[in-house]
Every structure is written in C-alpha cells, then in structure tokens.
Design a protein around this nucleic acid. Structure first.
Lengths: 319, 319
DNA sequence: CTGTTAGCGCATTCAA
DNA sequence: TTGAATGCGCTAACAG
C-alpha cells in the first residue's frame, strides 16, 4: 500500500508539471469517448440556447464533453456535422433537426448512435422530447376568447416540421372548440424566422385583413410580426393584440402586452441529456420514449387586469 | 493509376456501408486533432453567442471541430473545462474568461495551447480581441450631450474585468472631456448580469438621485436597469433616457428610445478564429497581436428626431 | 508506385 | 499485488 499523502504529493507534482492523461488515446483504447454531440439549428435562438444549456449542465456533471454544432437551419451543414460527429466517435447525440431534412434521417439510422430528438423530429424509433403543441394553442386561443377577442389570426410555422404541423392543427382545433370560424385570409405560413414572421405579417396587413388578435407560431415569428406591426404604425393593444409561442428574452421589456405560451426549455434539455445518458450507459434495447412537456401561459399586462409588470409573476422568469 | 470512376464507386460503397475513418485514432497518430475549444461565460448572452457563431463559421469552414463550453461565469467550472479541453488535446482555444479569474491564468500558460482571448483577458502574452471601450463611452456621452442631457449616470461593470475597467475609465474621461462633474451618487457598480443591473438601478432610485440620462455597462446591465425603471414606474424618455453597450436582441422592440454602442460581435469572433488558425498552422513565435474593434452608435427613436423605427437604419441589423 | 511495418498513449490482459 | 506485453485504428516512414 502506498502512503496516501505521498500519492497525493506525486499526483500534484505530476499535475503541476503539466501532465494530463490523453483523452484521445483513452478513447481509442476503451472504444468509448464520453463525448456527446448537440446539433441545433441556431444557437442564437433563446429557445434552443436554453435547451442546450439545460442539456450541457447535466452532461458536464456526468463527465461528458459536449460538442455543440450550429447547423444554421441548413440541412447540408447539419449532415456534414453529423458526419464529423460520427468520425469523432461520439457516444450519443441530441438533435434538433433543421427544417429541411436532407440526408440526416438516413445518416442517423445508419450511424447507430444513441440519439434523442428535441422539439422537431422525424423518426419515431428514437427517443424524443417535445412540448404539447396542441395544448399551447388551446391556451392561447382560450385566453383571447376569455378577454373578448374572437377575431384571431395566426402566423404559422412550416408544415414540414412537427411543431409547425401540430401548432397549426392546434390552432384549427382550438377555433373549432370555441365555435370560431377559420378565415384563411388571417392565416399566413412562415419559416420560424424573424424575416419570415415580418413578411407574413406585412402581407396580411397589406391584404387588408388585420385581425383583432394574432398569434406567432414561435419566438422569432412573433418578433418579426411585432416589427411589422410597429413599422406600419399599428397600435398594440388598441388595434391588435399579440400572443406568441416560446420565450424570447426580456419579454416583459419587449412588449408589456405580449402574452406567451412557454415551454420549459431548460428542463427539456436536461431531460434529453438524462434520457441520452440512460441509453449510452444502459440497455439500448428499451423501446423509444416520447416525452411531452406542458406549456405555461404567461399573460401580458392587459390580461393581468392592472397588476404591475415586474411584480411577483413569472414574467421575471429570466431572473 | 486507378480509374477515377472505380475509385469513386468503391468510396461510395464503403461509405454506404457505414464506414467513416476514426478521427480519434487519426488524432492520436498525427498528434493534431483539428479541434478547437471555445469557452464563454454564458451562451445565452447574445453578445457571446454572436462571437461564438462568427468563430464557429470560420472554424467549420477550415475543417475544425468546435467544442463550445459554457462556464456560467464560474471560474471553477471554467478551469475544469480548460482541463477537459487540454486532455482532449485541442489544437487551439478561444477564451472569454469569467469575471473571477481563479486558476485559469496559470493553466493557460502551462497548457501551452495557442489561445486567443476575446472581450476580457488577463495575459498580454496571448493574442487578444476587444472593442474600443473608451471610445464607446465617448460615443454615448457625446450623444447625450448633443441631445441636451448633461446629468448622466452610469451602471458600471466589475472593475476586475478589462471591459469593466475600460468602460468605467472611459465614462470618467468622457465626462471630463465635456466639462461635466463626476457625481458618485449617480454611479453604481454591478456584475454585468441582469440581476446586478436591476439591483444597482433600484439602489440608485431609492438613494433619491435619479439622473436625467443613464448608461448600462453591457447588454444585461441595461436589461436589468430598464426593468427597475419600469417597475418603479419611471417614464422613459420623460424622466430618464437610457443608453447601453452591446446589442441585445430585437433592440428596437425592447424600447424604441434605447440608444446603443454596439461592437461587431460576429466579426470579432471570425477574427478570433482567423488569428487562432494562423497560430495553429503557422509560426507560434510571432509576438501576440491585440486587435481593437470600433463601436457603432445606433440611436433610438428620439435621437433620430422623427424617423420611424424599422426604417432603413441599422436598427434592423438582426435581419 | 505499392505494400508492409511501427508506434501514437492509453487500458486491459496475462504472467510473475 | 505488481509489472510487462498487447492492440485499439490510424498514418508516416520505409522497403520493395
């Protein structure tokens, strides 16, 4: 038995001389890398950034190193990254796919790497995590109806994504549920981007059919939509009232009248990491799990009757 | 000579069978990894996220894989990550240090990895990139003065960071330059966080010395400061007018009267990557380079006299 | 130009 | 319990 104090001294000495074991060689020998890849369409989008932060925290705690890749909503860059990650012999993958799928689905299946999809996904044979998109629209529409607004428009996301489809479906169902009429002139389709939301809203305005209330299909769509309304000098909440899906940043500062249906993004990221770690460490044979997270409604100033913004409600969530 | 078409066919066949060369083994053999680490204090901060995006784009193009690490402004987590990156045998490092330095400076020097510091840094023997912080405050103060506001407050950053020090110094110099008096009751020190800015502003308000104009030392400080003003029901721009440093997100939507001094964050990230690649590939013996980027002034609604927000000015920069 | 071999730094195995 | 040998998958060097 070596003396503990001596051991510690030697370790310290070795360490201070700048030695550290080579993780590359270890990975080669052990055939496992403690490496996880996370691929997201845009790290600047606060929703994705929060998912990444949640996942990263768990993976770091569990001793994994994380390679974060920003596909820039480009399916070719995404595929290229998947290839790179595969060559790096990652042990697991958390993927938020870009809108266009490209070659990724094929690669994911042939790579045979444990994978968890978040928000958007294309393959039910993998673990996946999403928000209850249908319910989000029930929340938003019912909020409008309760406040007396029944003339409701929608800037939808792209229907070739899961949240795009489900939110559009959810919007239609919610209108039906409240006996409201579906008016196509008050629906536009965009691509979950700021520009997309902006142009869709401009188009609706210029089409002459401004609804009394409108919903943005995701955070960026809502930003674009608000920008169009401001540019056209349309009064909020006087002429139109706005709700959106997904947190932005400092939402209370952006527009005190803005109501939002919010997914617990960091929780979803954490859960994705936990599911992934279970796969990596444990039985890969378990059947895929689909986890659905609930949205929370955060109401803007008007819906709160006259409570002050910045008071004890969840609008301070970023704190 | 092998027939090109045959070669291609073989490659395709091999590739389709799921084979891809093992980057881990290659790294071990070649003793170079095409791996770069980026360590930032908070990937949710749009300034840091933009730096990362800029750097990542260049590194990706040049064939490097990027490991992005979020130190959460925690010097212990930062050091732990530096250790991990070192063990992973990264070829280069881009570092935005956390506020407290902890063990990182020592590690950086003993690791002997090509390193580029961005925004904050502690060692002039490495390449570094920053904004012209002094000039930022000249821009902001002179803008206020031109608009007739001479009673100017400042929520400073921490003086143990480079931008914190330089911006505070810059503020003092700018006041001097315009013959204005330095009033300590209108200066508070915070930590570049939303909470910090919020509490600092609250403290100033409750101290009874509200200036007619105020500057936030960085993007988060400005958010916190705005939140405090709103919560206290203080009218912007009636009672106080606000300027800040660094872009937020959708700044025009947050407050149309908000003026900002903005660093070209993505450019700075790109340049960091280019400097790093030059070091990694080339002569390590070159003396360290310090690059200083200029701020751009983006004026809020009032300063623009009556031009509409959303018009052809740089407030649409996020587009 | 093609084919063979040695070794990168570890972890595992087997021998002592 | 401790020490020496083997090989992970690749590439660079070398020999044919």
């Amino acid at each position: 038995m070596i003396n503990q104090k001596t051991l510690k001294k030697v370790q310290d000495a070795v360490h201070s001389m700048g030695y550290a074991p080579d993780a590359t060689a270890r990975a080669l020998r052990r055939q496992t890398n403690d490496l996880v890849g996370i691929v997201v369409p845009d790290i600047l989008n606060p929703f994705f950034a929060r998912v990444v932060k949640g996942a990263e925290a768990v993976l770091y705690r569990e001793g994994f190193t994380v390679i974060i890749c920003d596909s820039e909503e480009d399916s070719r860059k995404e595929s290229a990254y998947l290839r790179v990650l595969y060559e790096r012999r990652i042990d697991g993958l958390i993927l938020i796919p870009s809108i266009e799928q490209g070659q990724s689905p094929g690669m994911i299946t042939t790579m045979r790497i444990p994978t968890v999809f978040v928000d958007r996904y294309f393959d039910s044979s993998f673990d996946s995590i999403k928000g209850n998109n249908y319910h989000a629209l029930t929340l938003l529409v019912s909020d409008f109806v309760q406040r007396g607004y029944t003339d409701i428009g929608f800037i939808s996301g792209p229907l070739n994504t899961l949240p795009g489809r489900e939110r559009y479906e959810g919007f239609k169902r919610a209108l039906l549920q409240y006996g409201l009429e579906l008016d196509d002139s008050k629906i536009r389709f965009a691509d979950f981007s700021i520009e997309g939301g902006y142009h869709a809203m401009l188009d609706m305005i210029e089409g002459g059919s401004l609804p009394r209330a409108i919903i943005g299909a995701n955070n960026f769509t809502t930003v674009g939509l608000l920008r169009a309304l401001r540019q056209k000098g349309i009064d909020i909440p006087g002429q139109i009232i706005v709700s959106g899906i997904d947190e932005l940043f400092y939402d209370d500062l952006i527009d005190p009248y803005l109501s939002l249906a919010i997914q617990p993004a960091a929780d979803m990221g954490r859960t994705a990491a936990e599911l992934l770690i279970a796969r990596v460490r444990g039985a890969t044979s378990d059947r895929p799990r689909e986890m659905v997270f609930e949205f929370t409604m955060v109401r803007g100033r008007e819906a709160n009757s006259f409570s002050a913004v910045g008071s004890e409600n969840s609008r301070n969530a970023t704190f």
